[in-house]
Design a protein around this nucleic acid. Structure first.
Length: 485
RNA sequence: GCGACGGUCGUCCAGUUUGGUCUAGGACAUCAGAUUGCCAAUCUGGUAACCCGGGUUCAAAUCCCGGCCGUCGCACCA
């Protein structure tokens, strides 16, 4: 079994994640649920995100609505660009991207937004047939990857957001005013997004409903190098992949050598890198890869993907896009609102540009599990080497035996700890089995109450990775945990 | 969405070829009890599955059809 399969198995067995609606035969692909263990891990990941990115950089966080009106997506471009024209063969049912198919067969360059009628006309004109079975085609259709919803009895058209950032953009004027914003201003949001993927696959990787954590940095495009706080991160080591060649440089040199365009971009990429290095992901198996023009999203002018190498290949965890003024300009035009703000540093009116960090939470969670999974063949055990901050359970509390008052002593210790730490109590079976179960969900510490505890009020504390134990006074447990969490 | 292959306890697997002996078996996990008392020990007992729907048949886990899910390939991937 490869690591993907073993992680999948562990996820199912230990309650990390599992298919949504799985007891029903009509459950659809692309929907997954976090079980108790995975939910703890995800919550701790998010808490680390808040600490290492939002609080560190004084960002502000909002929580926007998942259903948004049609106009939002007229403005954002998703209604047009998120739609693919497709043609289906009448005979064998094969489906093709209409525009690509025509270009390939006729050599004709097709404008991206050709109407269905025009596509059908060209198909007839050139007598195009299915490449697989030579069948003729149905009339062309459009497949939109957004989920449409109907609002109220009149069924007004609206959509589930395909990316969380749109709520940040449309909320920007009020957020900026009420929070007395100054550029650059970073607004963050954690929430769900929805994409009607044609072929969702590989559990947490290609989902139809998924978590994003997005950070939108509103900035003055004329001041991208005026950023004093850049000095705090200028020595951050970065692995950059530019046009297929790798560069290991610090943030300052990355700018000097032209790999990164400016201090603002370099600053946030550095913060992101520092954040991920604290999640337990092996940073030597990551890279920031600059996207080619063909790979970039329709709104991005410069784009880097933060990628991580897992057992199923290199995976994009974060899209770092310089979106320029694309979004605010479009929302300004369509809504007819003025989205300009004053930059008090030179008293000019400016339509902010945007640099975004668009993080996939579910993929990050998988990557952390993938990099943490460890089979200790010598001790015949499976260990998730999660960093203590992310462990679903921080500490297990076990009585060595249940008699002679050890059970009650252990239960007392557990009661003392459980409000402040993710603690877990277990007295069933042998002590070794309890240790094994605990390390499979990545708990870094186990406390065991034994006979000596009753004499000197100390317990053993066992380290997950080394299996070594030492004694610590019951009164010092919190001190230990605080120092190691 | 197309194609190939697959879907049996929580997990992995046996049974499907050749319909009946399957009231579906095993291992691990899990629960209860006993025992031991610091690393998945032992013993006893228990819980627990044929993906869903239809068809053929005296009889379907097994054959047929449809759907759903999974893996892989193609396509897609803001």
């Amino acid at each position: 079994m490869n690591t993907y399969d073993t992680v999948m198995k562990l996820a199912l067995e230990r309650g990390f994640y599992f298919p949504s609606c799985e007891i029903y035969a009509d459950a659809h692909a692309g929907f997954w649920e976090y079980g108790p263990t995975g939910n703890n891990l995800k919550n701790k990941f998010i808490e680390l995100w808040r600490r290492e990115l939002l609080r560190r950089d004084d960002m502000i966080e909002i929580d926007g609505s998942q259903i948004m009106s049609k106009s939002v997506f007229v403005a954002s471009g998703h209604l047009d660009n998120f739609t693919d024209p497709i043609i289906k063969c009448k005979k064998c049912g094969a489906t093709f991207r209409a525009d690509r198919f025509i270009t390939e067969k006729t050599g004709k360059e097709i404008p991206e937004l050709l109407s269905g009628n025009e596509i059908d006309k060209i198909i007839n004109e050139y007598k195009l047939r299915c490449t697989r079975c030579s069948g003729s085609f149905h009339e062309s259709e459009r497949f939109n990857m957004m989920f449409k919803v109907e609002i109220g009895p009149s069924k007004e058209e609206a959509y589930l957001r395909p990316e969380t950032c749109q709520t940040i953009f449309v909320g920007f004027p009020r957020i900026f005013k009420t929070m007395r914003g100054r550029l650059p201003l970073a607004v963050a949001q954690l929430g769900k997004s929805f994409r009607n993927e044609i072929a969702p696959r590989q559990s947490l990787f290609r989902l139809r409903e998924f978590y994003q954590a997005e950070i939108e940095v509103f900035c003055n495009p004329n001041r991208l190098n005026e950023l004093p706080k850049f000095d705090q991160v200028k020595d951050t080591p970065l692995l950059l992949s530019i046009k297929n060649s790798s560069h290991s440089v610090n943030a300052e040199d990355a700018i000097r050598k032209g790999y990164l365009p400016n201090k603002l971009v370099a600053y946030y990429i550095s913060l992101l890198s520092l954040f991920y290095s604290k999640t337990g992901i092996n940073m030597e198996r990551t890279r920031f890869r600059q996207l080619s023009d063909e790979e970039k999203a329709f709104y991005a002018s410069t784009a880097f993907d933060f990628e991580v190498e897992t057992s199923i290949g290199w995976i994009e965890l974060v899209a770092c896009n310089y979106r320029s003024d694309y979004d605010l300009k479009r929302h300004g035009e369509i809504s007819k609102q003025n989205l300009h703000v004053i930059d008090p540093s030179d008293n000019t009116k400016v339509l902010p540009h945007l640099f975004e960090l668009s993080m996939g939470i579910d993929r990050s969670i998988y990557s952390i599990l993938d990099h943490s999974y460890y089979e200790d063949t010598e001790a015949e055990r499976v260990v998730l080497k999660l960093v203590p901050q992310l462990a679903p359970v921080l500490v297990g509390v076990f009585p060595l035996v249940t008699k002679d008052g050890l059970r009650e002593k252990a239960q007392n210790i557990y009661s003392e700890l459980k409000l402040d730490y993710s603690a877990f109590y277990d007295e069933s079976g042998s002590i070794g089995r309890r240790y094994r179960r605990l390390e499979e969900i990545g708990a870094p510490f186990a406390l065991t109450v034994d006979n000596q505890t009753m004499k000197d009020d100390t317990v053993t504390i066992r380290y997950r990775d080394t299996m070594l134990q030492e004694r610590v006074k019951v009164s010092e447990i919190s001190v230990f945990l605080d120092a190691n969490k």
